[in-house]
Computed example of a mutant assay.
Amino acid sequence: MKLSDFIEQNGLTHEQMAERVGDCSVSGLRKWLRGERVPRPDQMRKITEITNGQVSPNDFYDLNPATPEVTG
């Protein structure tokens, strides 16, 4: 689950989520949501804890496997 989906589904503001993560500004949180930055490892652990595992480190990366090229 994306962090933005968790925030929306739980009726949280960006300010509330940043406060729960701790050591995180609202502008930093917004950069994560826009994909401009990823949380530090300690912040990722806190996010996973806060979301009960619904948001994991993998959710911050585009991990779609590349389609193998067909050669003939």
Rank of each mutant, 00 (worst) to 15 (best):
P41Y: 03
G72D: 11
R20H: 11
R37N: 15
P39C: 09
M1T: 05
W32T: 03
P41Q: 06
V70N: 11
R45N: 12
R37Q: 14
Q16I: 07
E49R: 11
T71W: 05
R34A: 14
S4P: 00
R20P: 09
Y61C: 04
S4Q: 09
V26W: 01
D23M: 06
E15L: 13
V55R: 02
Q16T: 12
V38S: 13
E15K: 15
K46E: 03
I47H: 06
R30C: 08
R20T: 10
T13K: 15
N52R: 11
R20I: 09
E36Q: 14
P65A: 08
G72I: 08
L3P: 03
M1F: 03
Q43A: 12
N52C: 06
R45W: 04
D59G: 10
G11P: 00
S27Y: 11
I50F: 00
E69N: 10
V26K: 13
D59A: 12
V38M: 11
R30W: 05
L63I: 13
P39S: 08
N10F: 04
F6R: 05
A18H: 05
M17E: 08
T51P: 02
G35W: 14
G35E: 08
H14I: 01
V55Y: 06
T13C: 09
E8D: 06
K2F: 07
L12D: 03
W32S: 02
D42S: 15
Q9D: 13
D59L: 07
P57R: 03
G11V: 03
M1K: 04
V26I: 14
N10D: 02
D5N: 13
Q43R: 13
E15P: 02
G35T: 07
Y61A: 07
G28W: 01
S4C: 03
L12A: 05
D59C: 13
T51W: 03
F6H: 05
